[in-house]
């Protein structure tokens, strides 16, 4: 089994659809290159090293969040709890490391605890979704507000300043010109790539997205794979929370606002199909870059930031409309 077939299994294996899909999977990259070209023509400052660093800084959190969301969407599910997991992680982190509100100084152990909290949130999503048989969007919608509510309850309306040099260093200290946070995000990308291509979990996720009944019949432990994937996504959101807290230097309850939207836009614009089974984490990388480059370009052109949510919304609609394989879904709900 080559990697090529493991990436596009299921019904897409029919020659005609496969060719169509192969072209479609390059479309996001072409869009990205065109976008960079156009913005450079309008404002040559786009290609300076300083701007490149700025783009990488803006892309690091969406990339990490996108890794988690990609796996969920590859299964054909959806995760709306991105902001919940991220906010809760960021707030708990701000309370565990050296901060302005209490005497804790757990450092790296604190980060580890936060990742466990993230895994716990994801695990809860997965277990409720699988065992109670509730559609994922409903479970994660609830978890979104539970997460943000819990973060709010922990803070009681305040914001906690982070003074830990280790955490602040992720955003401030640089290696080869890029902040450490960017390298952390790239490490997450590498881990996600390994999970996707070289582990059984990765194969199973594609199999589930391609056709769950077939996957179940071939002996794949469907429920366990789903729970594990939601847990994995929760860990990625927790990493996103750590990076967000480092970037802001604060733990507050609004830290996640708007991130769900960017994440889903990035995954979908990258070409990962909402119906599941088609897409990859590398495509999400392209999607993240499209979203970030576009908003960077809009800033360079002087478009107010509040327009960007609207543009992202239109991008979601356009990308989903273009990528949906209508033959596979007769009823759309």
């Amino acid at each position: 089994m080559t990697i090529e077939t493991s990436i596009h299994p299921g019904p897409a294996a029919r020659p005609a659809t496969r060719r169509r899909w192969r072209i479609a999977s390059w479309a996001p990259l072409i869009v990205l290159v065109l976008l960079c070209g156009i913005i450079t023509l309008i404002n040559p400052n786009f290609l300076t090293f300083g701007n490149l660093v700025r783009i990488s800084q803006a892309a690091m959190i969406p990339l990490v969040l996108g890794m988690g969301a990609t796996f969920i969407i590859l299964m054909g599910s959806i995760d709306l709890s991105v902001e919940g997991g991220l906010t809760l992680s960021a707030v708990i982190l701000s309370m565990l490391v050296i901060n302005g509100a209490n005497e804790n100084a757990f450092g790296l152990l604190g980060v580890l605890l936060v990742l466990i909290v993230g895994a716990g949130v994801g695990f809860a999503n997965g277990v409720i979704h699988v065992r109670l048989k509730i559609p994922s969007f409903m479970v994660t919608l609830g978890m979104w507000f539970v997460g943000v509510g819990a973060a709010n309850a922990l803070l009681g309306g305040m914001a906690i300043r982070i003074n830990d040099p280790l955490i602040r260093g992720l955003a401030i200290e640089r290696f080869l010109g890029f902040p450490w946070g960017v390298w952390v995000a790239l490490l997450c990308l590498a881990i996600a790539l390994v999970i996707q291509n070289y582990t059984r979990l990765g194969r199973y996720i594609y199999a589930l997205g391609g056709g769950e009944e077939l996957a179940a019949l071939s002996g794949i432990p469907v429920g366990r794979v789903r729970i594990l994937t939601f847990t994995l996504a929760g860990v990625f959101y927790a990493v996103g929370g750590v990076l967000a807290a480092a970037q802001l230097g604060l733990g507050n309850a609004q830290i996640g606002t708007g991130r769900l939207f960017t994440t889903i836009t990035a995954v979908v614009v990258g070409g990962t199909a909402l119906s599941g089974g088609q897409g990859s984490v590398l495509q999400t990388l392209v999607g993240v870059l499209i979203v970030v480059v576009l908003s960077n370009g809009m800033v360079l052109m002087g478009v107010p930031p509040s327009v960007q949510i609207g543009v992202q919304g239109l991008m979601i609609i356009a990308a989903v409309a273009l990528s949906i394989d209508r033959k596979r879904m007769r009823i759309v709900k």
Binding site: F137, Q312, G313
Partner: peptide, 26 residues
């Protein structure tokens, strides 16, 4: 967007919500 473009309603309305809140902010 939901019916003609055959986009699942939760994603179509999530996106539309973004467009509307952007309009409100602007």
């Amino acid at each position: 967007a939901h019916v003609r473009l055959r986009i699942p309603s939760f994603i179509a309305t999530l996106a539309m919500g973004g467009v509307l809140s952007s309009a409100a902010l602007v």
